[in-house]
Simulated assay, not measured.
Amino acid sequence: MADHAHHGEIDKVTGTATTGHEWDGIQELNTPLPRWWIWTFYATIIWSIGYFIVYPAWPLMNGYTRGLFGYSSRAELDVDLAKLNQVRGEKMQALATASLEEIEKNPALLALARAKGKVVFGDNCAPCHGSGAAGGKGFPNLNDDDWLWGGSLEQIEKTIKYGARSGNDEGHMGNMLAFGKDGTLTKDQIVQVANFVRSLSGQSTRPGVDLAAGKQIFAENCVACHGEDAKGNPELGAPNLTDKIWLYGGDEATIIETITNGRGGVMPAWIGRLDPTTIKAMAVYVHSLGGGK
């Protein structure tokens, strides 16, 4: 390929001057952009400079340029929310002062709490628990009656407020220990106790595995949290192992992984992020989904 200079030549087909650029016999025509397009382009540059001056635009090390207008979409939202609360007025005040039980007994307050709770849930909780609160692997289903930390109104409110393993001093604590990782149990023992755990909920077990040995291992290592009847302990966040509801999965491989490496999912604390009335509404909403105790 070659680039030869033919500047000033006139293209025979179009009658347009060329730029002098040629590649393999193909010449570039000298056809400038229309003047109106050029001036529009310059106008957008001037407009952008004006925008940078009057509106927030450039990020800084510890903030951003505020602009002459001092505009803030967050400030606008705060104003809109304040107006909305003014319109709601007495209803929101009643929701704020009523107890959780009083809200559920009052049809009007219950409807208000559920409506508000549903919107807040969609904005804050749905990314983990799903838009229908059905959860997923590692994220509890809030529609059933299986609750790691308790399903009463007060317990749900506490979980929303302070979270679990969230770093908040009031939050739920307690992890599933890593019995394999820390060397407490051997691989064979983990297989035995995993199969025993599966048998607790009527699931099939691996042929040839000593379930009696698994039961003994369970008694020595697991009853402290899950209880002698294996029905769990909401104080510790220890799940019921006799039902067929599994947070991470109830197949043998997943249970072995859980026993070997432990579990410690985090539920964030919402106190400080959401106001008390909003948290109250969300607790009522979650409790009313069908699985609240």
Rank of each mutant, 00 (worst) to 15 (best):
S131R: 11
F139N: 11
D169W: 13
N175R: 14
N141G: 11
G150H: 03
P127R: 06
Y162W: 10
G138K: 09
E154T: 06
G151C: 09
P127V: 04
W147I: 03
G150M: 05
D169Q: 14
E170Q: 15
F139M: 13
Y162P: 00
G174Y: 03
L153S: 02
F139P: 04
G151D: 04
A126C: 12
P127N: 09
R165V: 09
H172R: 15
G163Y: 00
F139G: 06
G130C: 08
E170W: 11
K161R: 15
M173E: 09
M176K: 04
H172Q: 10
W147K: 01
Y162E: 02
D145A: 14
G171H: 00
G150N: 09
N143T: 12
L148A: 07
C125M: 05
D123W: 08
E170P: 06
L148H: 03
M176N: 03
C125H: 02
D145E: 14
T159I: 11
G138D: 11
M173A: 12
C128L: 08
A133I: 04
G135T: 04
K161Q: 13
D144M: 10
K137S: 06
L153F: 02
G130D: 07
A133K: 01
S131W: 11
G132P: 06
S166C: 12
M173H: 08
A134T: 05
I156F: 03
D144K: 07
K137L: 12
A134M: 11
E154H: 10
K161A: 02
